[in-house]
């Protein structure tokens, strides 16, 4: 579901770039100009510019901007350290923290009229989830070698033919549940806002949903990060 007015799409259309009117564009340029792609770029540019502006001169006594970042990054670092240990935190902190910031900003940006959440497209969330899913298998393989397969065989050797398909199914279910939950929540928020806006926008009908939208956006970003941490930790530790 799209907002009626997406200002980046309008600007690009004025510049003569092809904007797809259906859900999927035809050419490669049209695919690159889809709203979720352009707003992904927008969120990336936003994060880089804000980071550059607030952290260009790091001081001993932090100002407002630096204080915020120290709190956010420090909080995340403590959380990862408590949940997945020092080695994993050192190696994967930048990746998961980037996901957290990107998802949080991407979710929240959809609340502003004229913007849409890039995470309300299944392509974005499935992309993020695939990265996490492949990485947690790589962590397991790197740590345990071929013994990583013990994670999928259950505790009792006799039960292997039964446990192996069960474990494989529940592992693939992680991939789908992680991506579809984020996508579903954010798309529901966007759709609800759009419908309420067209029905009774003049009477501030979307306001309560916007308030809930802030909560949903932040909680979904946190849940994504928490599950990423749990999966990484699960692949890293020994099989039960």
């Amino acid at each position: 579901m799209e907002h009626p007015i997406l200002f980046i799409s309008i600007i690009l259309e004025k510049l003569g770039l092809p904007i797809p009117h259906g859900p999927i564009g035809n050419g490669i340029l049209e695919k690159l100009c889809e709203p979720y792609m352009t707003y992904t770029w927008f969120v990336m540019i936003f994060l880089v510019v804000v980071g550059k502006l607030t952290l260009s001169n790091v001081e001993m006594i932090p100002g407002k901007g630096q204080n915020f970042w120290e709190m956010a990054i420090g909080g995340m670092h403590d959380f990862f350290l408590a949940n997945m240990g020092e080695e994993l935190t050192d190696r994967y902190f930048s990746m998961i923290a980037t996901f957290a910031l990107y998802i949080a900003v991407g979710n929240l940006i959809g609340l502003i009229p004229g913007f849409m959440s890039p995470t309300s497209s299944i392509n974005t969330t499935l992309g993020l989830t695939l990265i996490v899913w492949v990485t947690h298998h790589l962590i397991g393989l790197r740590r345990h070698g071929l013994g990583y397969i013990k994670h999928f065989m259950g505790p009792i050797p006799v039960m292997i033919p039964v446990m192996l398909p069960i474990e494989l199914i529940s592992n693939i279910a992680r991939l789908l549940s992680l991506s579809i939950r984020l996508f579903g929540n954010i798309m529901a928020k966007e759709t609800l806002l759009f419908i309420l806006f067209t029905l009774a926008g003049a009477y501030f009908a979307p306001l309560p949903i916007m308030m809930l939208g802030v909560l949903v956006s932040l909680v979904q970003a946190m849940v994504f990060v928490l599950l990423t941490v749990v999966y990484f930790q699960g692949a890293y530790e020994h099989a039960h």
Binding site: S170, V219, V223, V230
Partner: peptide
């Protein structure tokens, strides 16, 4: 957050596992 993360995805995961099988 950890409660939300742990319990919030139970329903989804069960349903998706059944459908994958």
């Amino acid at each position: 957050i950890s409660a939300l993360g742990n319990y919030g995805h139970i329903g989804f995961t069960v349903v998706i596992a059944v459908f994958i099988g």
